[in-house]
Computed example of a mutant assay.
Amino acid sequence: MPATPAQPATSTPAPSAERPESPRFADIDEAHRMLAPLMEAIAAVGGPHCEVVLHDLSSGDLDHSVRVILNGHVSGRTVGGPSTNLGMEVLRDPGRNHDAFGYRGRTADGRELISSSVYYRDLDGRIIAALCINRDLSPVQGAMASLAALLPEAGGAGSEAPHELVAPDVSSVLEDMISEAVAAIGKPAAVMTKADRIEVLRLLEDRGAFHIKRAAEKVSARLGVSRVTTYGYLDEVRRG
């Protein structure tokens, strides 16, 4: 499950393909003992931007499900911290295989994650634990943005060719517009300055994004600021 303590993942991961069933454990304590060395190995190879979490789902207490966490600074969680929206989905439909690999999530401050989750059951078939890996993509994205800045713009200077966003609904169009505006700044939202965020809003305002319903709410979530702050920035853009 993704490491978002305050907001849901960007999408629901697809279940894994057919594969051998995960081992079963007598209880969460046994799961902890058996999985702890594996967690250490993953964190050591993944480095400081790779969070590894063991969730205790045996009691159904999703507000305090984090049993063990390595590199918790990625999501800002500690032992005793919460699960995510995916934990709720698992407990709502425990009979299904919820294992998923390489899906995207997002932290509360707007950093993108790539994540995998494996769920473990007890001897009676109840889901009692989840092993989750969340890798922060913002360092890689920042490096890519720096390299992209060294390349000439496609089409050359003064190119005015339109760029059309085609999607099945207006919400998806808005998400693409926000992603393009953030990408144009060249850095993840989590490290943007106030001026950077105002420029994101200027780009969106120029394209008419705020004519779409709930646009300010979605922009606020992506930039990691409140709606009040977003409206304040938008006023600055419109006054300028």
Rank of each mutant, 00 (worst) to 15 (best):
L137N: 03
I178V: 05
L131Y: 00
M88D: 02
D61R: 08
I128N: 11
R96D: 14
P152Y: 02
D61S: 07
L137R: 04
V166G: 02
A145T: 01
H98W: 14
P82S: 08
T78P: 01
Y120E: 03
S138I: 07
A143R: 09
R106N: 05
A183G: 11
G125A: 10
I69M: 14
D63C: 06
L91Q: 15
D169R: 09
D176Q: 14
G76I: 12
R67A: 12
A154C: 05
D99P: 09
V170K: 11
N134R: 07
D109W: 13
T84K: 09
A129T: 04
Y103P: 01
L131I: 03
A148S: 09
L131K: 00
V170C: 09
T84M: 11
S179V: 04
E180F: 13
Y103N: 03
A149K: 01
F101T: 03
M88G: 12
I178A: 08
E153S: 15
S59R: 07
H64W: 02
I127S: 12
I185D: 02
S138D: 04
D93C: 13
R96P: 15
I128K: 02
G142E: 00
D61T: 05
D169A: 10
G95R: 08
G186F: 08
A145F: 09
L150S: 12
I185V: 07
A100Q: 03
G87D: 09
L131N: 01
N71P: 10
G156L: 12
I178S: 08
A129M: 01
N97H: 15
R106Q: 04
E112F: 09
H64A: 13
L123T: 12
A184I: 02
S65R: 06
A129Q: 00
S59Y: 06
D99N: 14
P152R: 02
A129H: 00
K187H: 04
G110K: 11
S171H: 07
A149C: 11
V118S: 03
L113I: 08
K187P: 06
S59A: 12
D109F: 14
E112H: 05
S65L: 09
E175R: 15
D124E: 11
R67G: 03
G186N: 05
P162T: 04
D93H: 15
R135T: 04
S179M: 05
L86T: 01
A154E: 00
L174R: 13
K187N: 01
A167M: 07
P94L: 15
K187T: 03
G158M: 13
P152C: 14
V166A: 07
A183I: 02
L150G: 14
R121I: 02
V68F: 01
V90Q: 04
V74W: 11
A149R: 00
D136N: 12
L137C: 03
Q141K: 01
G105E: 04
G80W: 00
S146C: 02
G186Y: 06
R92K: 15
Y120C: 14
P139W: 03
G102A: 09
G105D: 03
L57F: 15
L70C: 10
G125D: 13
G158K: 14
S59K: 08
I69T: 11
E153I: 02
S65G: 07
A157D: 13
S138H: 07
L165M: 15
A167Q: 06
I133F: 04
D56K: 09
D122K: 08
V173K: 12
G158I: 09
I127D: 08
G81F: 00
I114M: 06
